[in-house]
Design a protein around this nucleic acid. Structure first.
Lengths: 169, 169
DNA sequence: GAGAATAGACAACGTGGTTGTCTAACCATA
DNA sequence: TATGGTTAGACAACCACGTTGTCTATTCTC
């Protein structure tokens, strides 16, 4: 084997069915399946290198986190982290940055029509996948699944990065 | 706000209940809840800086991926990636590396008793959390949840890294 | 007005991966 | 049995995405 292009191998399923570790892997697997599908479909439509965090960032911006500091708070990252995300969104043309006339320190961020279009397409793919799951599980089954997950996660915050076994702090 | 120590904010729940995006966040949230609990509990017991990937790597090693190249294949990363993981596992004393007598190129990796202890403790925490969820959902509910997730994820491979909206390739 | 808090930026760094290149060892086969 | 292909492991350089620490400019509060 060369050094590169690792083959995708399923190291997931059946760590030990019925174990907690297996349950964790199932959850991650389902999440990844959703996200990976969105990514690849949007890539086909010309939106390269999108990340989930881009979508969430734009959602937060739309919801009022229209400057780097506020976005940092909402996304639970440092200001620098948020600034870098904004930088890439600017590069891609998904947001624009303009001086806040009311506060010379602030630079307001605004999602562009292109950004909204990406969000719309991403959401549409996810919704389609959800409907697909709904057909597979039955709509009652899907509702139950979501209800159960909601009960489990409560209203705990979720950090989007750091998928790993560890949270950084 | 200073530049550091971002506050944890819930940007998850209620992206839009009933949407695909919300479902994705629920899945991630549940996964993260499991993993974060394991991390912090193991940290309390003196196992610092553990990652899920460490656990999975040790599992793979135990299952026969006892050299860097093979581990790389199983974990779907490059040899260098696997080598680095092994390096940290060596540092922590979770594995040892010894020359393979049968093949001068190979260096065999073996999980130490300490490594097994960490795996055992991690699995125990996950199992406990799963039982807790079982009490919350009822055992039929938990079984159904797992059954549904299994149906959804199928036997697709899961890459452990890259939690984001994008897979790296 | 003075002092504290806030917004944004810069540089340096850490982590966990990547690619690309290299050597040494093994293996198959002509 | 010599040779050419494949494999294992390592080194260096890089990248993405976050971090910390420090800085200036501006605003807010009293």
């Amino acid at each position: 084997m060369s050094n590169h292009s690792p083959t995708l191998v399923r190291m997931t399923a059946r760590v030990a069915p019925g174990s907690g570790a297996d349950l964790a892997l199932l959850l991650l697997g389902c999440y990844r399946r959703l996200i990976d599908t969105v990514i690849s479909e949007l890539e086909e439509r010309g939106h390269e290198d999108l990340r989930a965090s881009h979508h969430y960032a734009m959602t937060a911006i739309d919801a009022g986190a229209d400057n780097a500091s506020e976005l940092a708070r909402r996304m639970a990252v440092t200001k620098q982290g948020a600034a870098r995300t904004i930088e890439t969104l600017l590069d891609r043309g998904y947001v624009v940055r303009e001086q806040d006339p009311a506060d010379a320190r602030r630079k307001k961020i605004r999602v562009t029509p292109l950004g909204h279009e990406v969000m719309r397409q991403g959401a549409a793919v996810l919704d389609r996948l959800r409907r697909q799951w709904g057909r597979q599980l039955g709509s009652a089954g899907l509702a139950r699944l979501e209800h159960q997950l909601t009960a489990l996660v409560g209203d705990a915050p979720v950090r989007l990065e750091a998928p790993g076994w560890v949270a950084h702090d």
